[in-house]
Amino acid sequence: MSENNKIPKLIKGGIHTDQRGQISYVNDMKFDAIERFYIISNSAENPLRAWQGHKIDNKYFYCIQGTVRVHYVKIDHWESPSKDLKVESIVLSADQSNVLHIPEGYANAIESLEVGSKLISFSTLPLDRTSEDDVRFDSDMWELVNSEK
């Protein structure tokens, strides 16, 4: 993997609408390394799912309904990360067809900005290897940011 793929990046897509309806697309999204996917819907009572880190898994997030803010932080030490790490965030919306790629080495938090929001998460790590990768942190480990990248 090139160094350019080691930082989070937004893969821009588009939406085409005509008399037949609408097509959302992200033509630059490559599925070569994708092993699995799942759909995340946070509850109205708990609109924040935080913090989950990945040592080797890459995550790709695509909003299919509503609006979500994805927060992410580059982990410095997996066993005892600093509470002062810089948190960044980006807003994904079903009204904009974009994919956020978060490479390995980051923790993320998913915040629903609208009730009923849904996010597809694509993963590059097979399910049988998740036990060696998945690291959970307390939901208040890092202060969330409300700025859009």
Rank of each mutant, 00 (worst) to 15 (best):
M1C: 10
N5Q: 12
K6D: 11
P8M: 03
P8Y: 10
P8D: 08
P8R: 05
K9P: 01
I11Q: 06
K12H: 15
K12F: 11
G13A: 08
D18K: 04
R20F: 07
Q22L: 10
Y25L: 11
V26I: 15
D28K: 15
D28C: 06
D28F: 12
D28G: 05
F31D: 01
D32K: 13
A33Q: 11
I34G: 00
I34M: 00
S43D: 08
A44N: 12
E45C: 00
E45I: 00
E45W: 04
E45S: 11
N46Q: 12
P47G: 09
L48Y: 06
L48H: 08
R49D: 06
A50Y: 08
Q52A: 15
Q52D: 15
G53S: 09
I56G: 12
D57Q: 13
D57S: 06
K59C: 09
Y60T: 06
Y60Q: 09
F61P: 03
C63F: 01
C63E: 04
C63I: 10
I64E: 10
I64A: 08
I64G: 09
Q65P: 03
G66S: 12
G66Y: 07
T67V: 15
T67F: 07
V68W: 06
R69W: 03
R69T: 03
V70Q: 04
H71E: 00
V73K: 01
V73M: 05
I75M: 02
D76R: 05
E79Y: 02
S80N: 14
P81N: 02
S82P: 09
K83C: 08
D84A: 13
L85P: 01
L85T: 04
K86W: 05
V87Q: 09
E88R: 11
S89V: 07
I90C: 07
L92Y: 03
L92G: 01
S93E: 09
S93I: 00
S93T: 09
S93F: 00
D95C: 04
Q96E: 14
S97H: 13
S97F: 10
H101K: 13
I102N: 01
I102T: 07
E104P: 03
G105S: 02
Y106D: 03
N108A: 14
A109L: 05
A109H: 03
L113N: 02
E114L: 06
E114W: 02
G116Q: 08
G116N: 04
G116W: 07
G116K: 08
K118T: 04
K118V: 06
S121F: 10
T124L: 05
L125S: 09
L127T: 10
D128T: 02
D128C: 02
R129F: 13
T130D: 14
S131V: 08
E132I: 06
E132C: 10
D133W: 09
D134K: 15
V135K: 09
R136Q: 12
R136Y: 08
D140S: 12
W142Q: 11
W142N: 02
V145T: 12
V145C: 04
N146G: 14
N146W: 14
N146H: 13
S147F: 11
S147R: 12
S147A: 12
E148C: 13
